[in-house]
Amino acid sequence: MRQEPITGRRRFLKNCLASAVAVAAGDGISHSAAGAQNLPLIRSRVVIAQDPQLRGSDSTVDSQRMLSLLDRTMETLLRVSRPDEAWKKIVRPGQMVGLKVNALGGRGFSGSPRLAEAICERLQQAGIRAADIVIWDRDTDELERAGFHVCIAGNRVQCFGTDRMGYEDDLATWGSVGSRLSKILTQRCDVLINVPVLKDHDGAGVTIALKNMYGTIHNPNKYHPNGCDPYIADVNMLPEIRSRMRLSICDATTACYEGGPAYKPQYSWQPNALLASQDPVALDTTGWQMIERKRAEEGLKALEAEERAPRYLATAADPQHRLGINDPQRIERVETDLA
C-alpha cells in the first residue's frame, strides 16, 4: 500500500505526458502526424463518405448532393455538428486559401469542379473572401479542359494555373529535392487544401494526396525514378508546403485502379465518395487499400506483386519525415453513407 502513491504518481506523469503529446498532435493534422510515429496512443482519422445517389440521371455529379456529402465528411472528420464549425477549425477570416486540385486527367478524370465549388461555398461561409480563394493546378488550359471556369480577376473565386504566375526564382530544398515552387503557393496561399483524386500510378503505385504536391514544383519529371521514393516524401517536407497544409479532401467520385495516371475508362470505377483527413499519409494509405480491394475484385494482382507498392508512404511516415501515419492499425477509419 505504501508503494501505491509512488506508482500512481509515476503513472499520472506518464499519462500527462502522453495526453500532452496527444493534444499537441491531435489539434492539427500535420502536427498530429508529426511526432506520432512511436506513440501508440496517437491515431489518425480518415473519413470515407459515400453517396450512392451522388449522380443525377445523366450521371454527372449533383451539386447539392456534393455539398451535403462534403458537409457530412467534414462534420465527421472534425467531430462537429455543423459544417461551419468544421471549416472554422481549418481557416480563419482574412486568410488566403488555395485548393490544389488535380486537373491532369482532363474532363474524364480530374477533380470534380462540383467538389471545388462546394468547398469554396463553405470557405466563404467561414469568413474567407471569395477573391482570397484560388483553385489551382499546374496549367490553366488543363484546368479548363477539366471543366473548371478560369477566373483571374474580380471579386470572385480565382481559378488559374501556375503558368499565369510562374515559379519562384529561388530553389526550395529538402533531402533529395531541389525545386522552384509555384508562386500561387508561396504568394497566394496562407492555407493549402489538398484536393487530389484517387488513382493508380504506374510508377508510384498510387497517386493521391502526397503525390498531388508534385503539381506545386517546376520539375516533377525529375522525381519519378525509384517509385518516386523518397521524392514524394521530400517534396511534402518542403517548409512552404508543410507549413500551409491543413486538410486533404480526396475526390473519389471516380477512381482508377489500373493503368493510371492517365484516364482509361476500362480501369475506372465510381465509388461516389470523398476521403478526408488532416493526415495525408493516413489518407493515402486508406486510398491505397481501396484501390487494392478493387484490384482484387477485378482479379488483378496486388501492387506489391507487381513491384510497385507505394513505398513512399513508409518513407513519409519514417522518423526523418513524420508526415503522418501509414500503419493501418493506427488509422481510425470512419465510414459514413449519405444514403
Binding site: 504506374d202 520539375n219 493510371g260 492517365a262
Partner: peptide, 15 residues
C-alpha cells in the same frame, strides 16, 4: 540509358 516508360500524357525524366 534511363529508358523511361512513359504513360499517356506524361513526360520522361528529361521533361
Amino acid at each position: 540509358p534511363r529508358e523511361c516508360s512513359v504513360g499517356d500524357r506524361e513526360r520522361g525524366y528529361c521533361g
